[in-house]
Design a protein around this nucleic acid. Sequence first.
RNA 1: GCUCCGAUAGUGUAGCACGGCCAAUCAUGUCAGACUCUCACUCUGACGACUGGGGUUCAAAUCCCCAUCGGAGCACCA
Length: 496
Amino acid sequence: MNKIAPELIAELKEKKEPEKGLPPLEIKGALVMRFAPNPNGPPTLGSARGIVVNSEYTKKYNGKLIIRFDDTDPATKRPMLEAYTWYLEDCEWLGAKPDEVVIASDRIPEYYEVAEELIRRGGAYVCFCEQEVFKALKDEKKACQHRNEKPQKNLESWKKMLEGEYKEQEAVLRIKTDIAHKDPAIRDWVAFRIIKTPHPRPEVGDKYCVWPLLDFEGAVEDHLLGTTLIIRGKDLTDSETRQRYVYKYMGWTYPETMHWGRVQIHEFGKLSTSGIKKAIAEGQYSGWDDPRLPTIRAIKRRGILPEALRKFMLDLGLGETDISLSLDTLYAENRKIIDPVANRYFFVWDPVELEVEDAEPKIAKAPIHPTRGGLREIPAGTTVYITGNDAESLKIGERLRLKDLYNIEVTDISPLKVKFIGTDMDLVKKEKARIIHWAPLDGLKVRVLSPEREFIGVGERGMEKEVDKVVQFERFGFVRIDSVNGDEVVAYFTHK
RNA sequence: GCUCCGAUAGUGUAGCACGGCCAAUCAUGUCAGACUCUCACUCUGACGACUGGGGUUCAAAUCCCCAUCGGAGCACCA
C-alpha cells in the first residue's frame, strides 16, 4: 500500500490529525501571542499548558511568541530571581523558545505614561478612600467623592503618589468604569497602588513606589506588544471587561481572547507556589525539583520527555470546563517514546541474599533491549540478590528461573534455601515457571527516588554509563539515571 | 448576596456555530486472552457516556426554557 499509493496514506493520516489537539484558529492578520507568568516560583505543570498551547499556535500559524514576566508585585507575590531563568530554560526544554522576552518591571515608565493620559482624558482618578469604605459604596453602586475630581487635580495627586508623598494604602489610581455596572467585579477597579517594598530585581530595586496591578499592566502590555490573541485561564475572564475600558479611553483595539478552565492533577492535589515555597524552606521537600512536586523541573528530572508533555497538554484541547486529571495519560505518552530506546537493567530493591546450592559461577547474557538486540553480560557468583517481595513469595518446592541465568528450586523457606536445577528454558515453557530478576553481589548501590518512597538496593553494572538517560529496571519501571558517585547510583523513578 | 461561565464513559477529548450520516470519536484506564527469558512493549477482544425535566421539530448530544451540580470574579494577588 505504501508503495502503490503513498499519497493515499498521507491523506488518511491528514484526515485523522485535525481531530485531536487544539481547535483551528481563524486568523485575520499576523498572530502575536504571549505567555505571561509571574516568576514567583518555577514553572509548574499548570504553566506548561500555557507555554505549550501558545507555542503550538504560534508555530502552526507562523506567529510570534512572547514571554512576558508579570512581576509587578514586589510584596505579596514577590518574584524570585532564579525563576526568570528557570522559565526561559523550561520553555526552551518544552520546545517553546520565545521570540521576545519582556519584563514588566522594566517598563513601569510606559505604564505611568498611559496612566497620565488616562487621567487627562478623565478615565482614571486618584482615590483616597479606605478599602472598606470604597467597597461599601461600590456595593451600593455609589460613587465616592474622589470620582468627580477634575483631571487637573487628579494629575497633581498622581504626581504626589509617584513622588512618594503618600503612604501605602493611602491612595490608589482607579479606572473609571460604570459605577452601577451590573457586575460588581467591574466597577471602578484599581490600576495602581503604592508599595514601598523594593523590587527583588537589582535593576529595579526601590526605583518605584507606585506599581500597576495585573489588569492594568496586562492591558497596556498587550497593546504595546501588539498581541492579537490572548489565551488564559477563565479566572481572568472578567479582566477583559475591565481592560476594555482602558482600551476604549485610549482608542486601542482589544485582542481576541480564549479561556480554559482550571486544571487539577490527582497526584498533586492543590499545591500553591507559595505553599511549596514554604514547605521547601521547612525541609519537607528537597528543592523545587523534588520528585513529589508538580514543577517542570521535577518532571524533567524524573525523565518525562518534553514531547510527551507537549502532547499531553495539547490533547486537553481548550475547554472552559474545569478538569481533574491523572498523570497516567502523560506516563502512557512518555512510555511510547521511551520504551523503544530505553536500555534494560536489573535492579533489586529491598535486597535479600540468595545462596544457590550446587551452582557454578556463570556470566549471564541478557538482551540490552528486547527487540533492538545487543547483549549485556552480568557475572553471577553462586550467591545473588533477589528482591525482598520475591523472596517472601517463594514456597517450598517451587521451581523458578532467575532471568537469563539458570533455574532453581526452593528447598526451604526459613531460612531460605534454594538449589540449582539446570539451565533449560523448558522449565519456563513447559512448567510455566515464574521468572524473577536478580543482581550480582558486587553490583552497584542504587537509590531510586519516587514520589511515593525511596527504594534502596543493588543494580547490575553498566547503568552507570547511562547518566541523564532513561532506562528500564526490569520488573520495576522506567527511571532516569540522575547521578553516579563511585559505586553509587541515584535514579529518579519515571513511571511503570 | 451580585455577576459571568460550564456540564459527553473512571479520566481527558471529538461531535454542538449550519438538528438527521451519532445504537456517539480518539486516547487513557480496567478486565480477559495472545506474544514475550520483565509485572514493560506489541496485538486481539470486552467494559464504559450525551446531568435531569419540559418545549420546538417528521427528527435533538446538537436549538429554547427550567432545575440540579460544578467553577470563576466581586482584592491596594497574579
